[in-house]
Design a protein around this nucleic acid. Structure first.
Lengths: 234, 234
DNA sequence: CGAGACATTGATGTCTGTCAAGCTGTGTGG
DNA sequence: CCACACAGCTTGACAGACATCAATGTCTCG
């Protein structure tokens, strides 16, 4: 480990690393919108549940896109308190930095496959292709928008409002056939919402008791009344 | 008012609007780093204390830089709860959007003078000048970095840790001769830190009692022991 | 110098955290 | 295929940090 320099650091302990360039689906593919133009090398990689993808303050060598699975980006305080800044779901790009290093760590929540491209090659492409440069900016701006909404949630919303916001966000992002399968545990949800896992659990139970949602297993949720959920969300 | 369309909307009720193009100091001037290259028209404008500069979801027609004064950017919940996302101090650029509208409102905290350029002209310049495009991205990424740190504060830090973080941030950004003159009131600080003004006041009093800081008037603060303040900040 | 906005301080309340016990359901191995 | 084991979840009792409500103090500026 000590002999491994940061610059030549291998991608963290993958299950399987296929180093072949893969073809990118051009439809509604946000990373593809960039790579399509520049013809960059795109690699696929997989991480097991709870595996670290990169650490906080690590050099930002790659930009990632979730293919399947789910990823959490987070910061830690010295005593272990954790704030998850975002969940990344299939299609989402993460790990994009304009500076030299990652400002949040990233871990696979469940077994996850990602596409990745070298940051340096994107930087290079942005120097010649204005479309690429524009895309990098809008992706960062999109993350900023999410962070600004989340600051409002963390600073000013009640526990119930936070959970309602969370459910509506997840419903929007990963509902299929009116049901959502949450990839993350209650602790992850708590660390995302600035709550404890117990408070999250109590809020969900209360929503169930009110008939606003139904469970089929703790992580399979059906929203039965989005309007009432919206009303609970300030 | 009703006859005034949004697209032709005048800049909000300035004290004085000098529409002359002004020369920009090229040294350590972040807006200048852009405008220097593109030769854009830069205007100066002034706002009085508590005057709105733009509202949430208003079309983002201009990008601003504080010359003198201070600005708060914030979001509101329907019942009036407010989260201030950032304070903008002399030199800071604010109101930069990659989308069509402002996602936070902005108000002058005290009498404030800003420089401004049309967003559209920056967009245009970024299409031909790769340096401009790069700068827009890094400025947005810099805001994102701040927001990520602030999410950690809002989600996971105690009241005392938040106030310590705030003091160190303000010390870094506006201390002159070892003293800082806060432009904002206790309520603004509370709304930035996700606390009430009373909790902020109590924390500051406690820090004074411990000799970590001294006051000369409620908004004139001297940090007497930055190390101990750092220790209080998780 | 006076008035009003702003800040401090105190008393009390409450929401969420903490600690603890038990339950569920998922995956594994006999 | 069933049963066990364990991680994850729920629920309860209690505690505590911060909010709320209220009164007083102080600085600023007109």
């Amino acid at each position: 480990m000590l002999t491994q320099s940061l610059n030549t650091k291998a991608i963290n302990t993958p299950i399987s690393g296929s180093k072949v360039a893969v073809s990118i689906d051009p439809v509604a593919d946000r990373l593809g919108a960039i790579t399509g133009h520049a013809g960059l090398v795109v690699t696929e990689f997989s991480y097991r549940k709870d595996e670290e993808i990169y650490g906080e303050d690590e050099p930002a060598e790659y930009v990632y896109q979730v293919v399947t699975g789910a990823v959490r980006s987070y910061k830690l305080l010295s005593d272990g308190r954790r704030q998850i800044g975002a969940f990344h779901l299939p299609g989402d790009v993460f790990g994009l930095e304009s500076g030299a290093s990652h400002r949040l760590a990233a871990e696979a929540i469940i077994d996850t496959t990602v596409r990745l491209v070298k940051r340096a090659s994107l930087e290079k492409a942005s120097g010649t292709d204005v479309q690429v440069a524009r895309k990098l900016w809008t992706m960062t701006a999109s993350e900023l928008r999410h962070a600004e909404n989340h600051m409002l949630l963390l600073g000013r919303k009640t526990a119930m409002e936070r959970v309602a916001t969370f459910l509506l966000e997840m419903d929007r992002r990963l509902a299929v056939a009116g049901m959502m399968a949450l990839p993350m545990c209650r602790r992850d949800i708590g660390d995302y919402l600035g709550l404890t896992l117990e408070t999250v659990s109590r809020a969900l139970s209360q929503l169930q008791a009110q008939g606003i949602l139904g469970f089929s297993g703790a992580r399979q949720i059906v929203l039965r009344n989005r309007q009432r959920l919206h009303n609970l969300d300030a």
